[in-house]
Design a protein around this nucleic acid. Sequence first.
DNA 1: GTTGAACTTAACGTTAACGTAAATGCTACA
DNA 2: TGTAGCATTTACGTTAACGTTAAGTTCAAC
Lengths: 128, 128
Amino acid sequence: MTATYTISELASTYGVSTRTIRYYEEIGLIKPERNASGHRYFTKKEKTQLQLIFRGKKYGFHLEEIKEMIRLFDEDPTGREQLKRTIEYGEGKISEVTKRIEELQAMKDEMNHLMNEFQKELNQLEEE
Amino acid sequence: MTATYTISELASTYGVSTRTIRYYEEIGLIKPERNASGHRYFTKKEKTQLQLIFRGKKYGFHLEEIKEMIRLFDEDPTGREQLKRTIEYGEGKISEVTKRIEELQAMKDEMNHLMNEFQKELNQLEEE
DNA sequence: GTTGAACTTAACGTTAACGTAAATGCTACA
DNA sequence: TGTAGCATTTACGTTAACGTTAAGTTCAAC
C-alpha cells in the first residue's frame, strides 16, 4: 500500500500551485523522493509536513520558523542531550503559541465588546 | 491635557521605525494631523489604531485586512442599516478570529503531545 | 543666529513567498 | 506509437511591507 502522490495531486488537494510545493523543497522544508527519471513522488510523510506548513502559515509563522518546527517534529532525537535540547526548544515554541492564543483572545473580547455596544445602539433604534 | 506625540516618540514606544509609521499613513491606515509647518502629530486616537495594527500583524492579518478592522472600530455607524451591516461584518471578523484561536489551540495540543512523548523517552533514559 | 537633531518628501532598494514563461523531458492511453 | 498532458529546471517578474539614501526644512537649545 503506502500510497504515493504526484506534485499536482497534492497541489490540488491543498489548493496551492505546484510552484509553491517546489518552492518548499527549494528552501528545504520538504525533501520528496524522486523516481528514476527525476519526477518527485510524495508519501504520507510529506503530506503531514505540508499540513504543518499550511497550518503554521495561517498562524502567521514565517517559513523559516516553520522549518524549525518541521525539524522538531521530524528528527526523533535519541540521546539524552539531544532529547533535552529538543524538549527545551519545544517548550519555547509552545509558550509562543500560548501567547498568541491569549492575545488573539484579548482581541476577540475587544471586538465582542464593541459589537455589544453596536447591538445596544441598534436595539435603542428598533424599540422606539 | 490631550497629549500629543511626535512620530519618533511613537516609533520608539512601539519599537518600529518612523518609516513604518509613515508607511501606514501612506496606505491609509492612520491619518495623523499636521501642525502649521507640516509635521505630523499623533493623539490618543492614532495610538489606539497603531496598537490595533501591531496586534493584528502579530496574528497574521494583512495590512489590508487590518484597514477594514480599523474602519470598523473607527466609524461609529449611526443609522439602522449601517449599524446592521457593521454588526454583521464584525461578527464575521469575530468568527475568523475564533477559528484561528481554535486552530492554534489544536496546534498547541499536538506540540504538547509530542513533547510528552519526548519527556517519556527522556525519563526512560534517566531512570536506568 | 547658528548648529545639530528631528522633521519632511521622493524615490529607489530589499526580502519573502511565490507567479509566470520558456525550453525540454516523461507517461498514459486510444 | 503518437500525442496530450503531465513532469522537470532555469530564470526573470511580482507584491507586500517596509529599509535606505538623498536633499531639503524646521525646531530646540545655546
